[in-house]
C-alpha cells in the first residue's frame, strides 16, 4: 500500500499541501480541514499524517473504518456516527476533526499534496500492509 511520507530535510513549512488538501476534500482553503498537518514549533517543523496502521479499524463501533483494496484505511461517511473514538485512539493522533464538520477525516494517500509540494518533501511510498489486527475476524 502507498503511504504518505514527509521529508523533514526538504519541507519549508509553506503550507501549500494543507491548502491543497482542504481544497480537494472540503472545497475551501482552510488548514484546519487539512488531512495533513504541518506543525511549526520551537524545535522546528514536524508533520502529522496517517501512516495507515489501521488501529482505528478495531475501535470503530459501526465498522465505518476499513481497508480498501489498496490497503488504505478509509472512513465511510455514510456509516460514521461521529463518535470521535477513532480521534482519541489513533496512536499518532492523525485522525482529525474540525468545526462544522460532524465527522472526522484522515489522509487516504490520494497524492494531491505530493504533486503540489514545491520542494518534493512529500512522497507516496510503497509499504508492506501491516498484519491484520482485527481480532473478531479470527474469532467469529
Amino acid at each position: 500500500m502507498k503511504v504518505l511520507v514527509w521529508d523533514k530535510t526538504k519541507c519549508i513549512g509553506c503550507g501549500i499541501c494543507e491548502n491543497v488538501c482542504s481544497q480537494t476534500w472540503f472545497k475551501e482553503e482552510n488548514r484546519e480541514k487539512s488531512r495533513i498537518k504541518i506543525i511549526t514549533s520551537e524545535s522546528g517543523l514536524d508533520c502529522n499524517v496517517c501512516n495507515q496502521c489501521g488501529e482505528c479499524i478495531d475501535v470503530c463501533p459501526v465498522e465505518a473504518l476499513n481497508r480498501d483494496a489498496q490497503g488504505i484505511v478509509r472512513l465511510d461517511a455514510n456509516a460514521c456516527v461521529g463518535c470521535m473514538s477513532c480521534v482519541g485512539f489513533c496512536p499518532s493522533a492523525s485522525m482529525f476533526f474540525a468545526p462544522k464538520e460532524p465527522i472526522p477525516f484522515k489522509c487516504i494517500s490520494c497524492g494531491v499534496c505530493v504533486k503540489s509540494c514545491p520542494t518534493g518533501a512529500l512522497t507516496l511510498e510503497e509499504r508492506p500492509e501491516p498484519l491484520e489486527r482485527v481480532f473478531y475476524r479470527r474469532h467469529f
Partner: peptide
C-alpha cells in the same frame, strides 16, 4: 480487541 460499548462511542 472488539468495541464493547453498550452505546456508540
Amino acid at each position: 480487541g472488539i468495541p464493547d460499548g453498550c452505546w456508540y462511542g
